[in-house]
Design a protein around this nucleic acid. Structure first.
Lengths: 134, 134
DNA sequence: CTAAGACCTGACGTTGACGTCAGAGGCAAG
DNA sequence: CTTGCCTCTGACGTCAACGTCAGGTCTTAG
């Protein structure tokens, strides 16, 4: 069993965030006799999943709705619709981000080529199969 | 010359947003004798650019810093560094979103295939060249 | 035993991009 | 001229995901 401070460190979030997740119905903890929270090992991955979903623009409420579906791997009709709509929203967001990325890259490359370095490969051709047409 | 209400409609934002952009130093308007704002045609595209950059996670301050650079197409050293760091951040965000999208798609497809419809093509293979490996 | 940390609840503060409301003025149509 | 819509400034409200602080309890190393 993991204590809240250790979970926070291992999952890369704050203690406050973990209590907030519990408040939102996302994370459950057993309590010791004195009321301290104890988490199973699996909580680390679960919290990382929350971070991933938050980063993708899902709200606490949406995550709470989808959690039983993701856990049990048996989405009902309502949850599936929500899943699909969120997935499609993320799809559109990816497309928008690619367009913005290409636009920034065009500005960067407009007067200097020296900024190119191998740690950031060009992905436009990989994702669209077409050269940039800004 | 366009009035603020028309610009808002044509650019797809609120009047309040336009005044906010001006407050942040992003958008300038000439004023009539009575103080009403008038915008040139180019303001429509400019406002749409703001929306695109906001959607990519840039703040008003960052946009304000990069604007002269993007306008003049002659980035100085500092602006270029900021441009590159924002571009790289967007790159990482795209990667994260693709991973999340694939994860949601996997959950969707885990027990039902009927959800597949042609308006949302699979893009994983186009972007990674590999099948999903959740 | 005791002092330093970790933990508890409760509650107010923060931030960014606006929403909303109040009160006052401008402007073309009828 | 007045009616109705647009615009102005100024200022407070909103919302989500936490940050931070207060005041108290628990636990553990020494």
């Amino acid at each position: 069993m993991i204590r809240i401070g250790d979970l926070a460190t291992r999952a890369g979030v704050s203690v406050r965030a973990l209590r907030y997740y519990e408040e939102q119905g996302l994370l459950y903890a057993t309590r010791s006799a004195s009321g301290q929270r104890h988490y199973p090992e699996a909580a680390v991955d679960r919290v990382r999943l929350f971070q991933q979903l938050y980063a993708a623009g899902l709200s606490s409420r949406t995550i709470a709705t989808l959690l039983p579906c993701v856990d049990a791997n048996e989405p009902d009709e309502e949850s599936t619709a929500l899943l699909v709509s969120e997935r499609d929203r993320i799809d559109r967001q990816i497309e928008d981000l690619i367009a913005t990325r290409d636009r920034l890259t065009a500005v960067i490359g407009s007067s200097k080529q020296e900024c190119r370095h191998p740690s950031v490969p060009q992905k436009t051709s990989r994702t669209t199969g077409q050269p940039a047409h800004v």
